[in-house]
């Protein structure tokens, strides 16, 4: 961490997004500090996934700024943004179903050209995700949801990103895998990679995040350290009521 007021790794400021006539984001501002896990909470149709698409350049905002590591990424194509050091674990994982697990993981290193280092990183992934070792030559589409999530995370890490953005990483996973995924996110973060994740499962997300934002119909209605938000009665009522009982 640098001294003084550290420049955030990712900063969205006053982003307004439209799909045709419909406005999706209203003056959205989010920052992800270096080395932090930041999560974005919100219900259906609150604009969470669109936020991910803005960061990755898949959707262009009508106004506002997106800065990554001190430089604007507005107007860059998705591949260019990926080359700057953002990797993604997309919603529903989106593996290349007919390619092998090994090929999927190596696809994550598509932007790199250092063959030997890539091979080393592949080995590293297999220590981080030991289960994948036996699955390397299997078709990715034949894996279980939890295993696919592992592959998606390994694939994202292979680009040696500074920021990983994850869209609902625990969606549709068995409770066992949910815990495993959260552990892994912590482990990834411990290696210095910042994480921005979108989640519906607020109690889990607040468990591991440093900061959190709550998005409601395109507006940030609450934000702050995850610990504070967890105690906030509004968050408890809106998001944690059901899940705490579970």
């Amino acid at each position: 961490m640098s001294t003084g007021a550290p420049e955030p790794l990712l900063a969205l400021s006053n982003v307004n997004t439209f799909y045709g006539q419909a406005q999706v984001h209203f003056d959205l501002s989010i920052t992800v500090g270096r080395g932090h896990i930041v999560c974005l909470l919100g219900g259906n149709a609150s604009g969470k996934s669109t936020t991910m698409k803005i960061i990755l350049g898949l959707v262009k905002p009508r106004s506002g700024e997106v800065m990554f590591d001190g430089a604007s990424v507005i107007g860059l194509t998705t591949p260019q943004i990926v080359r700057r050091g953002i990797a993604s674990v997309p919603e529903a994982r989106r593996l290349f179903a007919d390619m092998s697990v090994r090929e999927n993981i190596l696809m994550g290193a598509f932007v790199r050209n250092d063959r030997e280092a890539i091979a080393q990183d592949l080995d590293k992934m297999l220590t981080l995700f030991p289960k994948l070792g036996q699955r390397l030559s299997q078709r990715a589409g034949s894996l279980s949801g939890g295993e696919q999530q592992m592959v998606a995370m390994a694939r994202a890490l292979m680009s040696r990103p500074r920021l990983i953005v994850m869209d609902e990483p625990t969606m549709g996973l068995s409770p066992l895998y949910v815990d495993r995924v959260l552990e892994l996110i912590r482990a990834i973060n411990a290696e210095g990679v910042s994480v921005f994740m979108v989640e519906q499962n607020a109690s889990l997300a607040l468990e591991i995040a440093h900061e959190a934002y709550v998005l409601q119909t395109g507006k940030i209605v609450l934000s702050g350290p995850a610990r504070t938000l967890k105690e906030d009665p509004r968050v408890r009522d809106a998001y944690l009521g059901g899940s705490e009982a579970a």
Binding site: L58, V82, F96, L106, M107, F110
Partner: peptide
């Protein structure tokens, strides 16, 4: 070849391929 991998990836999931940096 790298481009060949990109072709295969893009034909299976265009968006995901872009997110891997495939042009």
């Amino acid at each position: 070849s790298k481009l060949g991998w990109a072709v295969r990836a893009a034909s299976q999931d265009r968006d995901a391929a872009m997110q891997m940096g495939v042009d």
